[in-house]
Design a protein around this nucleic acid. Structure first.
Lengths: 234, 234
DNA sequence: TCGGGGTGTTGATTCAGATCAATTTCAGCA
DNA sequence: TGCTGAAATTGATCTGAATCAACACCCCGA
């Protein structure tokens, strides 16, 4: 059932890093790894939380759908990151759904184990608090962006985020792979896929970036970064 | 310096309700109450956290401004609620600013006290976690709304939220006071104030609600609620 | 009583992005 | 290897909300 947590490649990233000695063994003992195909649902909005999830490989999307069926991709969860802890710790049903966007395996730590560990180890709760605080900050930024920035700017910023903050001083060449489909990218910035296509075409035409399938080549990351700040230089 | 926390009207609402006996006395001893006029800043984005705030009376607005000066009102904090705990507990600068929207008094519990209490009382951290989890859920809903709903619908939902969930079965008459200026309401739903005016005029014309200054009268809350779900009946 | 600034309203116009409707491209698979 | 359905592109058109520009209102202080 995969490598033990103690030797997990991502061990120091996730909240579990605050656990020591015996607790890690317990974690290892309790967790169950499961394989997911792209598109498979991990849990749905309204489900009761049955544990905390930890992405081992692949990519997870956190989604929310409104009554009319409109679906918005709220954020991505990458290997080494946890999710689903919020509902578990507060004892409320999931307010969002989670699905695998890329095939991969995901560990689940059962509710009882998490609760016991949280009770014994306040630092673990604090670690989850930090994670949630970061997610909240991201959510606030997202609200700001959707309200104030054009879809073009939002997309440029997303590109920069995907490319990592590798913006060297001068014109740095960056190339990267889009982690998800264009439809999902559109959903991530809150526009229609048709609009997404047009935005990409425009950016391509300006030479800001070059797109081929999921591969993106950015000749001058600095220029792109400048553009992404609503035509306002630093 | 105001009533002691132990007899604060809002005591059972705030996170402090998990504290017992001596801890409450400590809280009382350490907290400082300060009066704020409408418009006064409590803290700014980027400031270091110096304590946790608790609204005793008045109304507080949490705001975020982007580099171009665009400002968005993210949420309101009402009497009995705490704010500013996120930055304090994570030890990061404030990512948002807080200002008094209505005159009132606000208690501050200094950083050292909060840290000590959090260390001694894991339930307090958990209480803040719950608060943050709720705020996060609200933020996610807000992202959904701004992406999927028209400004008209967003405003109707806000009205319902202000009116409390007092939607009796049939046509219930609800009347309420808008807690903030129309400019701020516009900022809260992410539209221009001109648009806000027009939306209000349209709603008035349809007889969905009647506006006079900050007073709102909703003859049939049920009808308004129905309208607020993108013309999709339950 | 007369400004005067903040708050709100109204109108004309523009524009970003949605919507509707066809294709085209491509990956998976029999 | 060709079929099939999903993903992506493209075009034409429409529209919700922003923008630009006046103007009304109202509370407050001189």
């Amino acid at each position: 059932m995969g490598k033990p947590c103690s030797s997990c490649a991502h061990r120091e990233i996730a909240e579990w890093s605050v656990l020591k000695g015996a607790a890690v063994a317990h974690l290892d003992d309790a967790r169950r790894s499961r394989h997911f195909l792209a598109g498979e649902a991990i849990y749905h909005e309204g489900d009761e939380a049955t544990g905390v999830y930890c992405v081992s490989s692949g990519l997870v999307g956190i989604r929310k759908v409104d009554p009319d069926g409109e679906s918005v991709l709220l954020r991505l969860v990458r290997p080494g990151q946890t999710f689903g802890y919020r509902s578990l710790l507060t004892g409320t049903p999931h307010g969002v759904s989670a699905e695998a966007l890329k095939e991969g395996s995901i560990c689940q730590v059962p509710a009882a184990t998490v609760h016991r560990m949280a009770a014994e180890n306040p630092a673990l709760v604090m670690a989850f608090f930090r994670h949630l605080a970061q997610d909240m900050a991201d959510a606030e930024n997202k609200v700001m962006e959707t309200v104030t920035a054009s879809c073009r700017v939002r997309f440029l910023r997303l590109l920069l985020a995907f490319g990592g903050e590798a913006d060297g001083d001068a014109g740095t060449r960056v190339s990267l792979e889009l982690p998800v489909s264009r439809q999902d990218i559109a959903s991530l910035i809150g526009v229609r896929s048709e609009t997404m296509s047009r935005v990409i075409r425009a950016i391509e035409a300006e030479g800001l970036a070059h797109f081929k399938g999921r591969h993106v080549d950015i000749p001058d990351a600095r220029r792109l970064a400048d553009e992404s700040f609503g035509s306002l230089a630093a």
